[in-house]
């Protein structure tokens, strides 16, 4: 992949056009041509935040971008829409405690017993962000106003568990923020992150595309084609069998 400086990368965003899905699906893009082009990045859609309030957004956007920064390999969390992913996940079922056993009594356990707080992810984020913004306001500089090195140092202090965020150990908040940021970066674009499959392009993951029968024993050959998202596979090849009725 080309070396793209941050400046030229930003320029690319500004100049980018939306590539029709049919072009992405094309089998005929020569490998060399594909490799020579800078990453195609859609213009970042402005996120309409439904979960985070305005003050929380300032922290979240800045913090995500430090966790997964833009660099020569491509966009970071912000360019990939990770904060949009977080917003939609936390505002939806996951934020409300999907797949979380929530009966008490609650008590802290050993590290091997895992998460034992009574908070849903939504509650945990709101509590933590309120405490973080309050503490930083008292110190005089909000997170998004700090230089990058100071931001990293503050995130490291959260990660090491140095803060009690109104009942949330800061390491628990940090781990959840990091885990969800990685999810948003690498999950299918249908969830609002990994915009235009930028993270998949960066590592060469072909996405939902799913037939390697002819390729698997061509050992050591790079699989050169545009990745495919769930949305692009939406033509829906249904695997029916005449001898097995669909609904028994």
């Amino acid at each position: 992949m080309d070396k793209v400086t941050r400046r030229s990368f930003v320029t690319t965003i500004g100049a980018a056009t939306v590539v029709p899905a049919t072009a992405l699906l094309s089998h005929s893009v020569p490998a060399s041509a594909a490799a020579a082009k800078p990453p195609v990045v859609e213009e970042s859609a402005k996120t309409t935040y439904l979960f985070f309030n305005a003050e929380e957004v300032l922290f979240i956007e800045a913090a995500c971008e430090r966790l997964i920064p833009a660099d020569e390999s491509g966009p970071g969390a912000l360019g990939a829409g990770v904060s949009n992913y977080l917003d939609k996940q936390l505002g939806g079922a996951w934020g409300a405690g999907e797949r979380l056993y929530r009966s008490g009594p609650w008590q802290s356990g050993t590290p091997s017993q895992g998460y034992q707080l009574p908070f849903t992810p939504a509650e945990l984020f709101h509590l933590s962000l309120r405490a973080i913004n309050r503490d930083l306001a008292a110190q005089g500089t909000p997170f998004n106003g700090m230089p990058a090195e100071a931001q990293d140092a503050y995130l490291q202090s959260l990660e090491s568990g140095a803060h009690d965020l109104d009942g949330v150990p800061s390491a628990v908040f940090f781990d959840m923020l990091l885990q969800m940021s990685v999810e948003g970066f690498f999950s299918d674009p249908v969830y609002g992150g990994n915009r235009n499959m930028v993270a998949w392009r960066m590592i060469g993951f072909p996405g939902a595309y799913a037939d390697y029968f002819e390729a698997i024993d061509r050992h050591g050959v790079k699989f050169e084609r545009e990745p495919m998202s769930l949305a692009q596979d939406g033509q829906g090849h249904i695997h029916t069998r005449q001898d097995i009725p669909a609904n028994l």
Partner: peptide, 22 residues
């Protein structure tokens, strides 16, 4: 649940839903 319609693509190839959210 059956292979059709429950297990069909594209929805079945969703890492977030099946791997992470289980």
């Amino acid at each position: 649940r059956f292979t059709v319609p429950e297990f069909q693509s594209p929805a079945i190839h969703d890492e977030l839903r099946f791997d992470v959210r289980k």
